[in-house]
């Protein structure tokens, strides 16, 4: 491997971008493929599989033994709203291997006591997301019911291509939200990606059940996300 390839790989990892390193075991040649790169032919197909599964392994491409190593950013969940559902979600997320951050400017909700051991930021999403931008390996769940708090991060999540964007609220609430997001410049296609009402339809009733339905929907979105690189 050349230093140049390693620098490219490390830069992608720092930027939370997925990368596949292809090493030709017969001649020591190394190629770094980043998510979204167009790679034609059988290697492209193998790279797609690797991005999907996240698993490293050897493959045979046109008679060449190749080792594909996958570097995926760790998935994380950003929750807008320090509400009852978030308390349950904060307990469930680590079990499924997701990092979780809660953002809520309302200091009455965002208290250490209600969220012991959870990363909690009592500030406006507008201010927090400036320093900690959303990305394709982040799921965003907006659960405050308050447009003043929810709308901006929802719009940002769609713009940043978060692998999951969910919003709590009835169909009626969501219809009004759609109009406001259009005013923020979001397209119909982008808005169509929002999971609303939030969570898989398992008949969830309690806050904990809604959290579980939401987490299941996040896992589904992550495992089935589109990362096509076949040219």
């Amino acid at each position: 491997m050349q230093l140049k390839a390693l620098v490219k790989l490390n830069a992608a990892r720092r930027d939370r971008k997925a990368a596949v390193v292809v090493t030709d075991l017969s001649d020591d040649k190394v190629q770094v493929i980043l998510e979204g790169d167009a790679v034609p032919g059988p290697l492209g197909e193998e790279a797609v599989k690797a991005f999907r599964s996240g698993k490293a392994g050897t493959v045979d491409v046109e008679g060449q033994p190749l080792f594909l190593n996958v570097h995926l950013p760790p998935p994380r969940i950003v929750v807008i709203g320090a509400v009852h559902i978030s308390q349950a979600l904060a307990q469930l997320a680590p079990v499924a291997g997701y990092d979780l951050t809660i953002i809520d400017p309302r200091t009455a909700f965002a208290t250490e006591e209600r969220f012991e051991g959870v990363e909690l930021i009592a500030d406006w999403p507008e201010d927090v997301l400036k320093d900690r931008p959303l990305d394709a390996y982040t799921a965003l769940a907006a659960v405050t019911h308050d447009p003043k708090i929810d709308d901006f991060p929802l719009s940002e999540a769609l713009r940043a291509g978060c692998f999951y964007v969910g919003a709590l609220g009835s169909r009626k609430t969501h219809a009004k939200r759609i109009e406001r997001l259009k005013e923020l410049g979001r397209t119909d296609n982008e808005i169509g990606r929002i999971a609303a009402p939030i969570g898989l339809d398992i008949g969830a009733a309690s806050p904990a059940e809604i959290a579980l339905a939401t987490l299941a929907q996040i896992v589904q979105a992550f495992r089935r996300r589109d990362l096509v690189t076949a040219g």
């Binding site: 491997m1 230093l3 390693l6 620098v7 790989l9 490390n10 990892r13 090493t23 075991l25 490293a56 392994g57 050897t58 080792f67 190593n69």
Partner: peptide, 22 residues
């Protein structure tokens, strides 16, 4: 380790990378 490898190399040190293949 990969960040370490880069900084060692950039500091002029010789570096080898070992990877579990199977």
């Amino acid at each position: 380790p990969l960040t370490t490898a880069q900084s060692w190399k950039e500091a002029g040190r010789e570096v080898a990378i070992a990877t579990v293949i199977d």
